[in-house]
Design a protein around this nucleic acid. Structure first.
Lengths: 218, 218
DNA sequence: CTAATAAGTTAGAATAATCTAACAAAATAT
DNA sequence: ATATTTTGTTAGATTATTCTAACTTATTAG
């Protein structure tokens, strides 16, 4: 297995690559707050382990193996955050620090149990995807419906915090994945939305609902 | 703060001291599966930090500071075990490995939340006391079930000598912490007990079992 | 297109935690 | 009470992760 330290390099590489495409040693150094020569030698070490493609003076890239390992760490991080918020009732602002440590636990049963307790979520409440058990991630860009504006037409693509009650509510309104929703207007005082979809010309969705619906812009 | 490694030495010292009084470097070395010279230099280091009293060729002793630090680590370990069993529904035999890692997390809020969710327990699923927030242990006095008499109603509070097999046995009989047990009668010749608990009206527990179950009188 | 700046590399040292080999002290066994 | 065994210590090496200083390559700004 990989050390705590190596795991942090992998995760940082993965995140930087998703934020900006190519990753330079300098960016990685700044992100980790570790000096360049240290980063440099760690890159050579990770290249030995076939986790990183390393060539002098070229940008850094994770190998497929490296991406998988990083994905699995991020999976543990995001499952932990979900668990802390939904099961232990922490606030979202409190969970990052704890997850930052728990992502390094080697405890498959523990994370599987979390996953089950959470109903096998695929995105976290910020809309970030949770990598699957093979470390793969779907990097679709979702917006919360609540962040859209009047006039937008969007496709319902995912649901945050899918409790049974919430799914029953969605079913009763005919809101299924893939439904096209047109935003007619938004109330200022409570942010509720007047929308149309399918054969319904004018339905009202509260902010509580719209911020749990993830959509893709048309 | 202390390193993961230092914490493991403190914990081992604490546990050995509670098992056998004085602790020799040799015992510590065997317990941790770390060679003597390594243990020796770590003891000097911990002595520098005022966590251990170290004198050449004398037994090892934790300082009060060392006892407190060790107690807090063990607190985290036992709260974690409790949480895994009661909230996440793990079996008693599954939780040690996970707790072994989680005891090193630096996350006060996390453990306080656990503590609250568990109702501030003072004893863990293996029957060991949970140190309080200052690292101190209160040695509450439990009775062995085998020392109770017919007619008593008691609450199962802890388990002595909890091997995997024993936990499996208890699980299979539905004997979990907190269960109320009524003693219907006791066989004279082999001291086995006829008891009722939950929906079971007449179960028989051998003396081998009853002397490992710690209970509180109602 | 050079000169200056930024980024990347190499070399060498420091710290933490581990080891083996060799030696010293304490405990034990005859 | 002395020889043997066990336990404890010292010395020196090894690996992982980090650093600073010095040097090289690449990029950018006149």
């Amino acid at each position: 297995m990989h050390s705590y330290t190596e795991e942090n390099y992998l995760k940082a590489l993965f995140n930087l690559a998703n934020e900006k495409g190519e990753v330079s040693a300098n960016e990685l150094s700044k992100r980790l707050e570790i000096k360049m020569p240290t980063v440099n030698s760690m890159m050579k070490k990770l290249a030995e382990k076939k986790l990183v493609h390393y060539e002098s003076y070229k940008p850094l890239r994770l190998t497929d193996k490296g991406k998988k390992e990083a994905g699995l760490i991020i999976r543990k991080h995001r499952l932990t955050e979900m668990f802390l918020v939904q099961v232990m009732e922490f606030g979202w602002e409190q969970v990052h620090e704890i997850a930052e440590q728990m992502e390094h636990l080697h405890a498959p049963d523990f994370f599987e149990k979390m996953d089950a307790m959470l109903g096998y979520p695929t995105i976290d409440p910020h809309g970030s995807p949770i990598p699957d058990k093979s470390g793969k991630i779907s990097w679709k860009q979702y917006d919360k419906l609540s962040d859209c504006k009047a006039g937008d037409t969007v496709k319902l693509s995912a649901v945050i915090n899918g409790t049974d009650d919430f799914f029953k509510f969605l079913n009763s309104r005919g809101l299924q994945l893939g439904v096209k929703i047109k935003i007619k207007s938004i109330e200022v005082f409570d942010k509720s939305m007047h929308v149309s979809y399918l054969k319904k010309a004018n339905e009202t969705l509260s902010h509580t609902v719209t911020e749990r619906l993830l959509v893709e812009m048309e």
